[in-house]
């Protein structure tokens, strides 16, 4: 296990190693749902919640089930299955408990099952050798970072919708260019702390 304060990992995951802007993970939903700030908040919160919970769950599954049985090489398959099952379970629960929350958050959940940022966070925590607390901090931070990026993107795209974009770049084209520029801007943070 590596000796890094979980708070440092949390901070790094939000800013210096933003999973979306430095690893470019979770692009599909990032481009699809960033047209409106309101919807991007919904998806952002859903990602924060699911990422935090699945990194914790996957950490437990990995170290208490896969490692003792010597089956670490199955981690990809198991992580995907755990994420899918967890998201499904949460969807059923939210639908039962709160229809309002379901409409605001629940409709994004199926989108999250196949969001590669969720899978990426689980894989990174194992590769980087985080312990349980560090993993949860990392999952939460990566979620917050992802949400931050998509809300910022939605804000920019709402303004772009009212401006004159050259026709060949309209839509996904300009969005990808903006994502690139945002990613350059976030690289400015990387001088603050270096965490791998």
């Amino acid at each position: 296990m590596v000796e890094i304060n979980p708070f440092v990992i949390l901070f790094a995951a939000i800013f210096t190693n933003n999973i979306l802007l430095s690893n470019y993970l979770g692009m599909c939903s990032f481009l699809a749902v960033s047209r409106e700030v309101k919807a991007s908040y919904g998806l952002g919160f859903a990602v924060i919640f699911v990422m935090t919970a699945t990194t914790a769950l996957n950490w437990l599954v990995y170290f208490y089930m896969l490692v003792p049985a010597g089956l670490e090489h199955f981690w990809y398959i198991i992580f995907i299955v755990v994420i899918a099952a967890f998201v499904q379970l949460v969807e059923i629960l939210i639908e039962k408990i709160s229809p309002v929350l379901y409409i605001n958050l629940g409709i994004f959940l199926p989108l999250i099952t196949v969001n590669c940022a969720i899978m990426g966070a689980s894989l990174f925590m194992i590769i980087r050798g985080y312990d349980f607390l560090q993993s949860v901090a990392y999952g939460f931070g990566a979620g917050v970072g992802w949400a931050l990026a998509i809300v910022a993107m939605a804000g920019i795209r709402q303004r772009i919708a009212r401006s004159n974009v050259p026709a060949p770049l309209a839509g996904a084209g300009i969005a990808l260019i903006i994502a690139g520029i945002m990613s350059l801007a976030f690289m400015g943070f990387s001088g603050m702390i270096q965490v791998q």
Binding site: M65, G70, L71, F74, I78, V82
Partner: peptide, 9 residues
């Protein structure tokens, strides 16, 4: 064992 564990999960 691997089939059992993976199947079990």
């Amino acid at each position: 064992i691997s089939m059992g564990v993976i199947g079990g999960i």
